[in-house]
């Protein structure tokens, strides 16, 4: 086990964490501000990836594809908020889960109806493909470094938006006291649509970024959605900082656990069973982490008191 391999795996964990953050940020805002459980967040991730794949095939430009993913997911998010989600704010969580689960099915089958059952092609642009050499002799794919950079820039932008702008103040106010902010004359329904569209756009961007190195296909959002929920529960619901810390924790735990646990078991078990026991335990690791954190801090690392 060389140092280079460990560093490379830490970078992999970071990249995975940053991608999870893009998903979790929207989810935690929507949950925190509107008190809404949105299972259809993964569908918006898929919408972003499909939009990017289509635009990349048309124009050949990856930048345009990313713009399209933001626009398409934000538009889909705003539309869904206006047509469906708006009716759910006063309902209990079970109704929200049912309605947004229905949205997953509608988005999935709608996408299949339009684009067919076969995965679409979306590739890393040539100027970002291939590995580059980092100090210390690490060969690392340039595209993954780009994902890390984009994720960090987006995170910085979000922190600035929440902490320093008027909209951010309104979002934070909406989180702590919904009735009061409405009484103060803020158009709460417009704010909700805006927050929902923002969260959707981030999910769409994540879908497009990841779609270039994974497969763009129907149902691609749901596995990520589960992890994003783990992230916001660990981080504390409604907290952007919590989403960031939670996402990096989950990303690093999942990646490093998957690599090192089988090797750890290999020290005292025969290889075949060590790989299978290690792999099984590694896939449980983030849930064990979540349980442990919730034991110590029941409302998550940065969860509010409410």
């Amino acid at each position: 086990m060389s140092l280079i391999l460990i560093l490379e795996q830490i970078l992999n964990g970071l990249q995975f964490g940053v991608m999870l953050f893009l998903m979790a940020a929207g989810l935690t805002l929507v949950f925190g501000v509107m008190g809404l459980i949105n299972l259809a967040h993964g569908a918006l991730y898929m919408v972003g990836a499909f939009a990017a794949a289509i635009v990349a095939a048309w124009t050949g430009s990856f930048v345009l594809a990313l713009v399209a993913s933001l626009a398409a997911a934000a538009a889909a998010g705003a539309l869904v908020e206006l047509l469906v989600i708006r009716k759910l704010y006063d309902r209990d969580h079970l109704d929200q889960v049912l309605a947004t689960f229905a949205l997953i099915l509608i988005f999935s089958e709608g996408t299949r109806w339009v684009f067919g059952s076969f995965p679409l092609f979306l590739d890393v642009p040539s100027y970002l493909s291939g590995p580059i050499s980092l100090p210390g002799g690490i060969e690392y794919p340039l595209y993954r470094l780009t994902i890390i950079a984009i994720g960090l820039v987006v995170a910085a932008g979000l922190f600035w938006l929440i902490a320093r702008t008027r909209i951010g103040i309104q979002i934070r106010a909406g989180e702590s006291d919904r009735e009061m902010i409405a009484a103060l004359g803020v158009d709460i329904s417009k704010l909700y649509t805006l927050v929902f569209a923002l969260g959707a756009a981030l999910a769409g961007l994540a879908g497009a970024l990841v779609g270039a190195i994974q497969s763009v296909q129907v149902g691609m959002g749901e596995p990520v959605l589960i992890l994003a929920f783990v992230v916001i529960v660990i981080g504390g619901i409604g907290s952007i900082k919590g989403a960031m810390v939670g996402a990096l924790l989950v990303g690093l735990t999942d990646t490093l656990g998957g690599v090192f646990l089988p090797q750890l078991f290999g020290l005292f078990m025969e290889p075949a069973s060590a790989t299978s026991v290690g792999a099984s335990l590694a896939s449980m690791l983030i849930y064990i982490l979540m349980a442990a954190i919730l034991l110590v801090r029941p409302s998550g690392l940065y969860g509010g008191q409410h």
């Binding site: 490379e8 795996q9 990249q15 990841v210 596995p223 998957g258 690599v259």
Partner: peptide, 21 residues
Amino acid sequence: GETYTKMGQTDYAAEIAQIRA
């Protein structure tokens, strides 16, 4: 090396790094 990945896994960066090493 012999690795069992997670069912439905979409990111193989960790496995590819192990292959390289």
